[in-house]
Measured scan of single mutants.
Amino acid sequence: TFVALYDYESRTETDLSFKKGERLQIVNNTEGDWWLAHSLTTGQTGYIPSNYVAP
Rank of each mutant, 00 (worst) to 15 (best):
T45H: 07
F2C: 07
H38G: 04
L16P: 03
G32K: 14
S17K: 06
V27L: 15
T41H: 10
S10E: 04
T45K: 08
E22D: 14
W35S: 03
V53G: 03
T42Y: 03
D33W: 11
L24Y: 01
D33M: 13
N28I: 10
E9P: 05
N28P: 06
L5K: 06
G46T: 01
G43W: 05
T12D: 11
K19R: 12
L40S: 06
L36A: 03
E22A: 04
T12F: 14
L36C: 12
T14I: 11
T45S: 10
Y52A: 14
Y8M: 03
T41N: 11
T1I: 15
T41G: 07
I26E: 01
D7H: 05
P49F: 06
F18H: 01
L5V: 06
G43Y: 06
K19G: 05
L16I: 12
S50C: 12
I48P: 00
G21E: 03
S17G: 09
E13D: 14
V27T: 07
G43D: 06
G46V: 01
T1G: 06
L40Y: 09
G46M: 01
A4E: 00
A37S: 02
H38R: 15
A54P: 05
Y6L: 08
T42I: 01
L24S: 00
T12K: 13
R23S: 10
T1R: 06
Y47R: 09
Q44K: 15
N28M: 11
L24Q: 00
Y8W: 09
A54N: 07
E31Y: 13
G46L: 01
T30S: 13
V53Y: 04
D7Y: 03
N28Y: 10
D7Q: 04
T14A: 11
R11D: 11
R23I: 15
E9Y: 12
S39F: 02
G43L: 06
L40T: 07
Y8H: 06
H38S: 10
T42L: 03
W35F: 06
R11I: 12
E31R: 14
F2K: 02
G46F: 02
Y8I: 01
N51E: 11
S50E: 04
A4F: 01
I48A: 03
V27S: 07
Y47V: 05
T45F: 10
T30C: 12
A37P: 00
R11T: 14
N51V: 08
A37W: 01
Q25H: 12
Y8N: 02
L40A: 06
K20I: 07
T14M: 12
P49K: 07
S39H: 10
K19T: 07
T41Q: 10
T42A: 03
G43C: 09
R23D: 05
G32C: 10
R11C: 14
T45G: 05
W35R: 02
N51L: 08
L24W: 03
R11F: 10
V53Q: 02
G32A: 14
L5I: 09
T30F: 10
T30L: 12
I48T: 01
Q44A: 11
S50Y: 08
F18C: 04
W34E: 04
G21S: 04
Y47M: 10
I26Y: 02
F2N: 01
T45Q: 09
A4W: 01
D7N: 08
P55R: 08
F18S: 00
A4L: 05
L24K: 00
T14S: 13
A4C: 08
G43V: 02
W35M: 06
L40E: 08
E31T: 14
T12L: 11
W34V: 09
T41W: 12
T1Y: 15
Y52C: 07
E31F: 13
I26N: 03
D7I: 01
Y47A: 03
E31C: 14
G32N: 11
E9V: 14
V3T: 09
K19W: 04
K20P: 01
E22L: 01
L5M: 09
A4P: 00
F2W: 15
E13H: 11
N28D: 15
T12A: 12
N29T: 14
T14E: 10
Y8Q: 01
D33F: 15
A4I: 03
L5E: 04
A54Y: 10
K20Q: 10
L40D: 06
L36G: 01
I48F: 03
V27G: 05
R23Y: 15
L36N: 02
G21T: 02
W34Y: 12
S50M: 08
Y6I: 07
T1D: 09
K19Y: 07
E31D: 15
N28F: 10
G43S: 06
E13V: 10
V53E: 02
I26P: 08
N51R: 12
A37K: 00
T42F: 02
Q44N: 12
Y52V: 06
Y8A: 01
V53P: 02
L5W: 04
E22Q: 06
T45A: 07
L24R: 00
N29P: 14
D33Q: 13
I26K: 06
V27I: 15
N29I: 15
W35G: 01
V27R: 08
W34N: 06
A54W: 09
P55W: 10
D33H: 13
K20L: 05
T45E: 07
S10G: 15
N29G: 14
D33S: 13
P49G: 03
G32L: 11
T41A: 13
D15W: 08
P49T: 02
Y47Q: 05
S10K: 12
P49M: 07
G32F: 09
A37L: 02
A37E: 00
T12R: 14
Q25T: 12
F2H: 07
H38A: 09
L16M: 14
P49N: 08
S17H: 05
E31L: 14
L16W: 02
E31W: 12
R23N: 09
T30Q: 13
T41L: 14
T30K: 12
P55K: 09
N28A: 12
E13Q: 11
E22V: 02
K20N: 04
Y6A: 09
W34R: 14
Q44E: 12
Q44S: 08
W34G: 04
S50T: 06
Y52I: 06
T45D: 06
G43F: 07
I48Q: 00
Y6C: 13
D7G: 05
Y52N: 03
G21K: 02
K19S: 08
W35L: 08
G32W: 09
A4Q: 00
N29E: 10
L40K: 06
W34C: 09
G43Q: 06
S17C: 07
I26C: 05
T42C: 03
A37Y: 01
L16Y: 05
R23P: 08
E22P: 00
S50R: 13
K19H: 08
S50G: 07
G46A: 02
V3K: 04
Y52E: 01
Y8E: 00
A4S: 05
S17Q: 07
S39N: 14
S10L: 03
Q44H: 11
K20Y: 05
A37G: 05
T1V: 15
T41K: 12
D33L: 12
K20E: 06
V3Q: 05
K19V: 09
Y6E: 07
D7W: 04
Q25N: 09
Q25K: 13
V3R: 05
H38V: 15
T12V: 11
S50L: 04
T45V: 12
E22W: 05
Q44Y: 09
G46Y: 01
L16K: 02
T12E: 11
T30M: 13
T14C: 15
R11A: 12
V53W: 04
D7C: 06
F18P: 01
A54L: 09
Q44F: 10
Y6K: 09
E13W: 08
F18W: 01
D7T: 07
Y8S: 02
L16H: 02
G21W: 05
T42S: 11
S17Y: 04
T14G: 15
D15K: 09
S10A: 15
L40F: 10
L36E: 04
T45W: 13
Y8K: 02
G43H: 13
P49A: 04
D7V: 02
